[in-house]
Nucleic acid binder design. Structure first.
Ligand SMILES: [Zn+2]
Ligand SMILES: [Zn+2]
Ligand SMILES: [Zn+2]
Ligand SMILES: [Zn+2]
Lengths: 165, 165
DNA sequence: CAGTATATAAGATCGAGTCTCGTTATTGTT
DNA sequence: AACAATAACGAGACTCGATCTTATATACTG
């Protein structure tokens, strides 16, 4: 019913998170370590959120996270948002602004996972992509701009193949 | 008080809307024509919104538009949103997602005005920029992606000079 | 100058996101 | 193992940008 991010292989020029949806162990470990290092205790709600995020190819909304967890372990909305904010501060999760109503969140890429997003205006599907040339253009540009650039976000909008057909 | 977009000259490599804030006549004319062609009547509320948008260097939020118009001609919030939606459908205005809470709107650039945005995480200021290399990278990439790309949006985040000081 | 359809204003309503606060769980200490 | 300290959590109230509803005003047509 509601448009959600799904796992779609990209035609991009470099590796992308989309490739290894339910798999990557390292992020989960890295996250747990970072949290311990930051002096945090281990709660079950956060553990559930971490596990869910680790199994996603791309970004989810807070509501999608709440719904997804409802079946196995009820996590309150406030906790979802608080946990996402904590993880964002620690650089483990990033917000994704797709131009749809809600903000999305995804685990932060190690170098090889860094990607951006395609959004279909028809069905709302969100797909990851990555491109070396684009990244080079961005980082070169970042030097010539009146701002100390720390992040960048790119969204391509259009119509996916299913909707175009 | 609240972070608003202000006119800031860019150091970019091409012309940008920021350069000719209160000036460009053609967009206003083009907009009026397009509206007439679409069979719309001429209301005062929309006229006020069009005039305001035409005098902006960069994107405003709906609330900023409502506030700006309050002094001269009260335009209701519903009208602001309805008018912006109409203009967006006609391709005269585009939404800008800066990753802040509210969506921003700006008049759609003719070719030479096309630009993207820098957002300061400190004070929330929004600045336009444009770059030829980046646009080339985007359009080349758009050919190799599983989506018929019709628009793109780029946001660079960081700290502006005032906030860094 | 009616008559008709669009445009607008005002306010109710919606919902994603935030905040408060009382309860529960984790961890370090005795 | 019992305890205290404090972080993590849940439930629900609340905020406010955005949308919807409806009555009124205004712009076009003949
Ligand atoms: Zn993604
Ligand atoms: Zn990138
Ligand atoms: Zn702009
Ligand atoms: Zn562009």
């Amino acid at each position: 019913m509601s448009p959600t991010a799904r796992t779609v292989p990209t035609t991009s020029t470099t590796a992308c998170a989309g490739r290894r949806a339910a798999g990557g162990r390292d992020w989960l470990e890295r996250a747990e370590e970072a949290l311990t290092a930051a002096g945090r205790r281990r709660g079950e709600a956060r553990r559930a959120v971490l596990e869910l995020l680790n199994n996603q190819a791309c970004a989810l909304t807070a509501i999608e996270i709440e719904d997804a967890l409802r079946t196995q372990r009820r996590v309150s909305r406030a906790s979802v948002y608080r946990i996402l904010e904590e993880l964002e501060e620690l650089g483990l999760v990033q917000r994704v602004e797709t131009g749809q109503a809600m903000v999305r969140y995804e685990r932060v890429a190690d170098q090889h996972e860094h990607h951006h997003h395609l959004v279909c205006g028809g069905c709302g599907v969100v797909m990851p992509f990555s491109d070396e040339g684009l990244e080079r253009a961005i980082s070169s540009l970042s030097e010539r701009v009146p701002l100390t650039v720390s992040e960048h976000e790119i969204v391509l909008r259009g119509e996916c193949r299913d909707c175009a057909a």
